[in-house]
């Protein structure tokens, strides 16, 4: 008899439990959290193929009091000195940072200001700036000629009309040629990771031997203080 009761309890209990489970599935479903982070904003202007600066065209001209003026329109009238940085009365927007190359007329021709001067006094136009830079930057010029240095866009095929080779001044400011440091575009932001939540990094140079020697030098042999 006890068995019969137990059997009934179990028999109906099974149905009851299964129905409760069904109800829970339907009305109290388990929620899945969404670990997908929000998309990050990216400055799309930085993603194009355009040169990062506007190089001086040939013949050169600059804007003076809203007028486009050719170099010689002024320089034919006014005399200007030879050694300039810091002492310029005009062209104040020029920021000089070209290492030991501080003399304007290392590059600009004294007589014809719309020309650039090569070694031996020969002059070239502003569109032949690589030849000028090659005066000092020999290896880089050689690399550029072979396509190793610099940037080629449009096509990888030699002779393709879409192909375009950037010259020195498409990327480098001739007066301050080194690239400036800048803020990088956003880093990875993948699932279960948020920006900046990157793994821990013990920065610094990994020179175990040097560190060990320094440690000994500072603390002596028996000192096991951390480096």
């Amino acid at each position: 008899m006890r068995n019969r009761v137990l059997e009934n309890v179990i028999g109906w209990g099974i149905s009851a439990v299964l129905l409760i489970l069904a109800a829970l599935f339907l009305w109290a479903p388990i929620q899945v959290s969404n670990p997908v982070p929000e998309p990050v904003d990216v400055d799309r202007a930085r993603l194009g193929a355009r040169p990062i600066r506007v190089a001086m065209h040939d013949p050169p001209s600059i804007e003076v009091a809203t007028f486009d003026m050719n170099c010689m329109e002024c320089h034919a009238l006014f005399e200007s000195g030879k050694m300039m940085p810091g002492g310029l009365q005009r062209h104040n927007d020029i920021e000089m940072g070209h290492g030991i190359n501080t003399n304007c007329f290392n590059c600009h021709d004294v007589e014809r200001r719309d020309r650039l001067v090569l070694e031996g006094g020969e002059t070239v136009g502003f569109n032949q700036v690589p030849q000028l830079c090659g005066k000092c930057h020999g290896p880089t010029w050689r690399d550029w000629q072979q396509g190793i240095h610099g940037k080629t866009v449009g096509s990888w095929r030699g002779g393709d009309e879409r192909q375009q080779r950037y010259t020195c001044t498409d990327c480098h400011d001739p007066h301050t040629p080194a690239f400036k440091r800048g803020t990088p575009l956003p880093g990875p932001n993948t699932i279960r990771m948020t920006p900046g939540e990157g793994p821990h990094h013990d920065d610094g140079v990994h020179r175990p031997l040097a560190q060990w020697i320094n440690q000994i030098a500072e603390h002596g042999h028996d000192d096991d203080a951390p480096p």
Partner: peptide
């Protein structure tokens, strides 16, 4: 970091 080529030492999340 200059001085190593161990990828594990690289930071991919620099900002």
């Amino acid at each position: 970091p200059i001085g190593t080529f161990e990828l594990e030492r690289g930071n991919q999340y620099y900002s």
